[in-house]
Amino acid sequence: METKEERQGLNFYFFFCQRIDKEQEKNRRTIEKSMGDKVRLFPIPCSGRIEPIHILRALEKGADKVYVLTCREGLCRYREGNLRAKKRVSYAQKLMEEIGLEKERVELINLKKENGMTIDTLVEDLVGKKTNIGSSPLNKPLL
């Protein structure tokens, strides 16, 4: 099991539906100040807009773990965005497994609450969570 320090050494990429936190532009700054480049946040118009390419590109660019945050099922403004996001994520996982990457490197978080969530607390919780994954093999220098 990796230690907290190791966890903090990981790079996290977050894709999240803009409707989760209307004040994301302000709230994300707290987290950026404390975590610097380790965390990168990308708001999207709707979580259904996520494509496997986003996830794969994030991994290629140095993410050790990619999170996709969606609003609660049934609450999508575009009806089915979060359901689509789920499908896209599992498709990306399939592709990742094919090339030998753990599928846990991408995780979809379906938020349960309706409102009142801020992106900084969400990110803080998720980064603090125990994971089994270490640094991505893509980030290791080639031998």
Partner: peptide, 11 residues
């Protein structure tokens, strides 16, 4: 196909 406000623009 639908259109939504681009969060980067709105912010």
């Amino acid at each position: 196909i639908q259109k939504g406000i681009n969060p980067l623009y709105r912010d």
